[in-house]
């Protein structure tokens, strides 16, 4: 039984079909990657899953619930959280505050509790703070709790964004080009980090350009071109797939990143 299943999803912008009857699935505990040349529609797929775009055709099912065309909040509550291609941290907040934003969704007090700082409010705040600390320590960010997000090194900012996603209580983490802009050493660290997340039971869906990362980490890979799925399989299957090689040939030295259209 797949945790996430996309069934023939389509997205059109005016006359342009950005995503064309795409189907894929992600099973519990897997690391799945979606790759493809620039403009293949990968980020659009992410935006469709996370409720930023409405989908024109098809259906997305997560954890036995239909989540297509639901609000981003509904989808977060269902257990999906994502990171962004260009890091979108709350840069003028402390590291711990960034993670606590993620826990906001589980807040169980109302405006008046906050206004009068009731016991319930104080308990909730304490629990949330403790949870944020636990998350940060579990991913080795414990030393930076009180730093401003802005001041973290790039690699740690990525990691913090993932921590924030975890804090929402997500089961499925969607990572949009997590290795973008990293040097080989940082990429290597990231690989290990993602593997450790898998070991903790998270299911992970990745868009990535860095072939090294994708081939090393993925259980399965889907390849997109012009909004369509052109291949799927294990890394070794994909590496030898003539369609994939053809799709990438014209664009083999892809450096520029796909424009994030959120």
């Amino acid at each position: 039984m797949a945790l996430l299943e996309a069934k023939g999803i389509t997205k059109k912008f005016g006359g342009l079909v950005a995503v064309d009857k795409l189907s894929f699935e992600v099973k519990q505990g897997e690391i799945v990657s979606i790759i493809g040349p620039n403009g293949a529609g990968k980020t659009t797929v992410f935006n469709m899953i996370t409720g930023i775009y409405e989908i024109d055709e098809g259906e997305i099912v997560f954890d036995n619930k239909v989540i297509s065309n639901k609000s981003p909040i509904y989808i977060v509550e269902a257990g999906i959280s994502r990171t962004f291609q260009n890091i979108r941290l709350f840069k003028q907040m402390r590291v711990i505050e960034n993670v606590m934003v993620g826990t906001h969704i589980k807040t169980n007090y109302n405006f008046f509790d906050a206004l009068f700082r009731t016991k319930r409010f104080r308990n909730e705040e304490r629990k949330a703070t403790q949870k944020a600390i636990d998350i940060l320590e579990s991913i080795d960010l414990g030393d930076y709790i009180n730093d401003y997000a802005n001041n973290l090194p790039y690699g740690l900012q990525r990691r913090l964004e993932i921590a924030r996603a975890i804090a929402t209580g997500a089961k499925l983490l969607i990572l949009d080009e997590p290795a973008a802009g990293m040097n080989p050493q940082e990429s290597e660290n990231l690989l290990n980090f993602i593997r450790s997340l898998q070991a903790k039971g998270y299911t992970i869906l990745i868009i990535e350009h860095d072939m090294n990362v994708v081939m090393n980490i993925s259980d399965r890979i889907y390849v997109m071109d012009y909004g369509k799925r052109i291949a799927n399989g294990t890394p070794s299957e994909i590496a030898s797939n003539p369609d994939v090689i053809k799709a990438y040939l014209g664009d083999a030295s892809e450096i520029l990143e796909e424009d994030d259209a959120v």
Partner: peptide
């Protein structure tokens, strides 16, 4: 205020 899209995706209404 800082990142509306990231806030939305983290479950803030």
């Amino acid at each position: 205020q800082q990142e509306p899209s990231a806030a939305a995706i983290n479950g803030i209404n």
